[in-house]
């Protein structure tokens, strides 16, 4: 399990979103725990993830609280 802020480009599964406020934000934008996401751009700078037709830019301060796991 890694932090989204640390991972390289590739496919990942969202394992947990730690802070509650951040979880709410991501849920409202349509990203859930258990989702498979694709990291299009990794840190430094905001991370860009994609799920289906939704692409979201996430600042480091939020990405640090998103735990993900690599999928192949």
């Amino acid at each position: 399990m890694e932090k989204l802020s640390e991972v390289k480009e590739g496919k990942y599964k969202v394992i947990d979103i730690i802070k509650h406020g951040k979880l709410k934000k991501l849920y409202n934008m349509g990203i859930f725990i258990g989702d498979i996401i694709e990291v299009i751009k990794s840190s430094p700078g905001p991370i860009i993830i994609k799920k289906g037709n939704i692409t979201i830019g996430i600042g480091y301060g939020i990405a640090i609280d998103i735990l993900v796991e690599k999928v192949d």
Binding site: K25, L26, M29, P46, I48, N53, I54, T55, I56, G57, I58, G59, Y60, G61, I62
Partner: peptide, 9 residues
Amino acid sequence: SPLIIELPP
């Protein structure tokens, strides 16, 4: 607030 922004097509 940290950035969280949708990238529209």
